[in-house]
Simulated scan of single mutants.
Amino acid sequence: MSVAVPYWRLSSFYFFYFCLLGGTAPFLALYFHHLGFSSARIGELVAIPMLMRCVAPNLWGWLGDRSGKRLQIVRFGALCTALSFAGIFLGHSYAWLALVMAGHAFFWHAVLPQFEVITLAHLGERTASYSRIRLWGSIGFICTVVGLGRLFDWASLDSYPWALLAIMLGIIGASWWVPNAQPAWHHAEAPAGGFLAQLRRPGVIAFYVCVCLMQLSHGPYYTFITLHLETLGYSRGLIGQLWALGVVAEVLLFLVMPRLLGRFSLRQVLAASFLLAALRWLLLGNLAGHLGVLLFAQLLHAATFGSFHAAAIHFVQRSFQARQQGQGQALYAALAGSGGALGALYSGYSWSSLGPAWTFAIASLAALGAAVIILTRLKEERA
């Protein structure tokens, strides 16, 4: 007899976890701007959590694989995330905020990869149900960007750290509500052939280079798009709704992704994602003042994140054996974090000196470069 999946317990964790992402991605740079930091300092502060994404998943993933105590790591990471972030109430100097960003991100990025393993262990052979659970993460993101956008239309941004801390307490509560589970292959023998040998297979390194370039191209978007739109006269409430529109498009794309991967090759899906990303950044850099163009650009989030991420996960699954999936996913997270950090840094330095249009043009070139690499280095292969 099959064991019932703790659907709502698992879903609640994804809900609160991505509520926190919805609170940081659109509004963190806005808060630093409220504190009076320059665009260069904002870019550096936003880059720090992304750099932690390069380190934390590998370290905590190794510890989870060795100990098997994944749920304990999730609970410890959730608690330390809140405790580290609470330091933001003690000071607002650049050095102190950099330390707070590094500390809370180090533990925050430890949480999700371990929880993904727990979720899939609960599902067992019912992996098709994963999307119904993960969907609540997108719902949490949407609720947060819309809710905080409306809140900051009439309330001061001084309330922003309190809102994030409340979300972190929700993550802690959800982590203690979830029962533990271990993957079936936890004690399986390692397969023949090392990780590096699989990494040297044709097209694999090229794929990871493209991951880095794609996330680099997102730098201006995740760091400055809220400030950019506010400068163009959009209200914070509307900006929150525009962020939510992108995530809704992403969710709808996920629903049809199995059909797309059945009809088109991974190379075609990835190349289309990169090309549409190049278009999106040009539109945001030059024509975001036109609401119709802006709405279309936000709908392209379905490609720049949705189809890209889904195809990338498929590629990693196909490229590495079962016991090396964790290393493949960790490398994916690390290079995505590296690219995101580089994107935040360059956009911070170029935003004030070159302006939004050129900053987004550089992002567009990075995405276009990824499209060229994937079309020339990755062989045609159906998912």
Results as ranks from 00 to 15, higher is better:
Leu35Met: 07
Leu227Arg: 05
Ala336Phe: 11
Ser39Pro: 00
Asn286Met: 07
Gln329Leu: 04
Phe305Gly: 00
Arg75Glu: 02
Leu83Lys: 03
Ala110Pro: 01
Leu90Met: 14
Gly369Glu: 03
Thr119Pro: 07
Ala47Gln: 04
Gln268Glu: 14
Phe308Met: 14
Phe18Thr: 08
Ala367Pro: 03
Leu90Gln: 14
Pro191Phe: 09
Leu252Val: 11
Ala341Cys: 06
Trp154Val: 15
Ala361Arg: 14
Ala128Cys: 02
Leu282Trp: 10
Phe107His: 01
Asp158His: 11
Arg280Thr: 07
Gly237Ser: 09
Val372Leu: 15
Phe76Glu: 05
Gln268Tyr: 08
Leu10Gln: 02
Leu283Glu: 02
Ile139Ser: 04
Ala310Ser: 12
Ala102Tyr: 04
His218Asn: 14
Leu97Trp: 06
Val74Met: 06
Gly337Met: 03
Leu354Asp: 13
Gln327Leu: 13
Gly64Asn: 07
Leu97Lys: 00
His309Glu: 01
Gly339Pro: 09
Val178Tyr: 06
Phe254Asp: 06
Arg280Lys: 13
Trp96Pro: 04
Glu116Ser: 09
Ala288Cys: 12
Gln72Trp: 15
His34Ile: 06
Val5His: 12
Ile205Lys: 07
Trp351Cys: 06
Gly348Met: 11
Tyr222Trp: 03
Ala297Met: 04
Gly219His: 05
Ala303Asp: 04
Ala102Cys: 11
Glu250Thr: 14
Leu287Thr: 03
Leu260Asp: 03
Gly91Phe: 08
Tyr221Val: 07
Ala271Glu: 05
His109Asp: 08
Glu381Asn: 15
Gln325Leu: 12
Ile139Trp: 03
Pro49Lys: 05
Cys210Gln: 04
Gly337Glu: 02
Phe115Lys: 02
Arg9Leu: 11
Thr231Leu: 13
Ala82Tyr: 00
Gly68Val: 10
Leu283Phe: 07
Ser347Gln: 05
Leu238Lys: 04
His122Tyr: 10
Pro202Lys: 10
Val269Gln: 09
Arg318Met: 04
Gly340Tyr: 02
Leu90Cys: 13
Trp185Cys: 00
Gly194Tyr: 02
Leu252Pro: 13
Val269Cys: 13
Leu232Gln: 14
Ala288Phe: 09
Gly77Asn: 12
Met257Pro: 01
Leu213His: 03
Gly348Glu: 11
Ala86Tyr: 11
His34Leu: 04
Gln324Leu: 14
Leu71Lys: 07
Ala344Thr: 04
Leu238Ile: 07
Gly43Asp: 11
Cys80Tyr: 08
Gln198Gly: 15
Leu169Trp: 10
Trp177Gly: 07
Leu199Met: 14
Val251Ser: 06
Leu232Met: 10
Ala366Arg: 08
Tyr221Ala: 07
Ala310Ile: 03
Gln324Asp: 11
Tyr221Ser: 08
Val5Cys: 05
Ser131Pro: 10
Ser156Cys: 03
Arg259Thr: 04
His33Lys: 15
Ser217Pro: 05
Ile133Pro: 00
Phe115Thr: 02
Ala334His: 10
Phe89Thr: 04
Leu71His: 05
Ala78Cys: 01
Leu90Gly: 09
Gly337Phe: 04
Leu295Pro: 12
Pro26Ser: 03
Phe254Met: 15
Pro57Gln: 05
Leu368Ile: 12
Pro57Leu: 02
Gln327Val: 05
Ile374Phe: 02
Trp243Ile: 01
Leu335Cys: 06
Val269Asp: 03
Gly140Ile: 07
Leu368Phe: 15
Asp158Glu: 13
Leu375Ala: 12
Leu260Pro: 01
